[in-house]
Amino acid sequence: MFHKSKAVFYSRLLFVFILIGVFLTLMMLLHNKHYLMFSFMVLLCSILPAYWKFEKQPLTTQTLMFVAILIALAVAGRVPFAALPSIQAASFVIIVGGVSLGPELGFVTGSTTALVSNMFMGQGPWTPWQMFAWGLMGLSAGLIGMTKLKKSLIFMIIFGGVWGFLFGWIMDLWYALQYVSPMTLKSFILAFASSALFDLYHGLSNIVLIALLYRPWEKLFTRLDRKYRFLPTKQNKGMD
Rank of each mutant, 00 (worst) to 15 (best):
K151S: 15
A83E: 13
I94C: 08
W134Q: 13
S100F: 14
I144C: 06
L197Q: 06
A90V: 07
D199R: 03
L209R: 04
D240H: 06
V208M: 01
F23T: 10
V180Y: 01
S100Y: 14
I158E: 02
L101W: 12
F81Q: 11
M119Y: 15
G124R: 02
I207A: 13
D199M: 04
L204E: 00
P128S: 09
G98S: 11
L26W: 11
T222R: 05
A68S: 15
T147V: 13
S152M: 03
V79M: 08
I87Q: 03
L185G: 13
Y35S: 10
H34Q: 12
I170N: 02
P103D: 12
A76V: 02
A7Q: 11
W217T: 07
F15H: 07
K234E: 11
D240W: 05
L101Q: 14
M37I: 13
I207H: 09
Y201D: 03
L166V: 12
P125T: 15
L105T: 06
L101D: 15
A191W: 04
L185P: 01
M137G: 06
A90W: 03
L73E: 05
L139K: 03
I94D: 03
E104T: 11
I18N: 13
Y175F: 09
L204W: 00
E218N: 08
K219N: 12
A68C: 08
L212Y: 06
N206H: 09
L14G: 14
L139N: 01
F120Y: 13
F165C: 04
L209D: 00
A114F: 00
M1K: 15
D225E: 02
F54D: 11
F221M: 03
A50P: 00
L29R: 07
F120P: 06
I20S: 05
